[in-house]
């Protein structure tokens, strides 16, 4: 499954290759060359090749205005792509939205309901719009969805009187009215207090535990880091990274640093092991770790008779990587 992912910096490569990927049955969301140019000429989404594996919790990261919401709107058939194509659960969108969207729950740009209806009536309104929803089970399903987000007590309260967190949870309840295979959440914790954020996060975990693929966008890395198995990073309408979290970590060149009295000999061993970016200093040498295990390097050093006084691995935090990818940094630009 992971093999289907485009790892590292996304190459806007051959469309043929991308098309082959989009037919992958293991992908919940696939797009190839998805592009949206607004009427004003602004390129909001630029040649996007998304690959969201089934069963993953995919964090769609990027600063505000990087094209996340526009992408989600195209995936859900709300906006029409200028070029390129996208598939949800193997069904092409926007042409197939009528068939596929009843299996997809979504929250786009904040909750939206009729302020003059109660929470329950609001859910009933959306349920009535669903061709695939059975009217017989409507009441039970609405009750269950409200229960799941903890809004049963407030079900008869008018939406206007809901707190922000309750509004958000009602929107998630609307996404859970039907059994879903995919949930798309756009900034689900936007504007929530820490308590609300935690509630939403645990809700995401519970949804994912049921085997549902979750696609969650955020401009906050911390949110994604705790819940997601995969990430896609957007910058200026382009996907600058896509892969699993460990893969993202690996792109941040972790450095191994060895404290030793014999820097010369240590450098020779490290070079022999194929490490690059050697930085010898006084009583210490560091190098890019790459895929090697640090304990193996340590063993090799000791084996070669190099005195090792200390050994450490320094990894840039995800925060550093994220900021680097999304452009505020200066060192990842290449």
């Amino acid at each position: 499954m992971r093999g289907a992912l485009v790892t590292g910096h996304v190459d806007p490569g051959g469309p043929g290759q991308a098309a082959a990927e989009s037919r992958d049955p293991e992908l919940a969301i696939a797009s190839s060359g998805l592009t949206k140019r607004f009427r004003g000429g602004q390129l909001a989404v630029d040649d996007l090749d998304l690959a969201v594996p089934k069963g993953s919790v995919y964090g769609f990261l990027g600063p505000n205005g990087s094209g996340k919401t526009t992408t989600i709107r195209m995936l859900l058939g709300l906006a029409f792509p200028t070029s390129g194509s996208a598939e949800l659960l193997g069904v092409g969108v926007p042409d197939g939205v009528g068939r596929v969207l009843s299996r997809v729950g979504s929250l786009v740009e904040g909750p939206a309901f009729y302020p003059y209806l109660s929470g329950r009536d609001n859910l009933a309104r959306y349920d009535a719009a669903d061709r695939a929803a059975s009217p017989r089970t409507s009441k039970a399903r609405i009750g269950e969805a409200l229960e799941r987000v903890g809004l049963t007590a407030a079900a008869k309260k008018r939406y206007r009187h809901y707190s922000l967190g309750m509004k958000q949870r009602l929107a998630i309840a609307a996404g859970l009215l039907q059994p879903r295979d995919l949930i798309i959440l756009d900034e689900p914790t936007n504007g929530l207090d820490p308590q609300g954020t935690r509630e939403v996060r645990s809700l995401i975990r519970r949804i994912a535990a049921d085997g549902i693929t979750v696609f969650v966008s955020s401009h906050l890395l911390a949110e994604v880091e705790q819940t997601c198995s995969h990430v896609g990073v957007m910058r200026g309408g382009k996907l600058v990274f896509q892969g699993s979290l460990p893969e993202l970590r690996r792109t941040g060149a972790a450095r191994i640093s060895v404290r030793t009295p014999d820097v010369e000999a240590a450098a020779k061993v490290l070079r022999k092991l194929g490490l690059v970016g050697l930085a010898p200093a006084d009583g210490e040498i560091s190098a890019e770790l790459g895929d090697d295990a640090p304990e193996k390097i340590c063993a090799e050093l000791v084996h070669a008779g190099v005195g090792v006084r200390g050994l450490s691995v320094e990894t840039p935090s995800l925060e550093d990587l994220f900021v680097g990818l999304t452009g505020e940094g200066f060192d990842v630009e290449d």
Binding site: L76, G77, L78, E109, A112, Y114, Y126, A129
Partner: peptide, 18 residues
Amino acid sequence: GHGTLRYLLTVPAGRTRL
């Protein structure tokens, strides 16, 4: 204006049908 249109369409209600 209420934003409910996008949720009706993602239900999906169907544009012509709605």
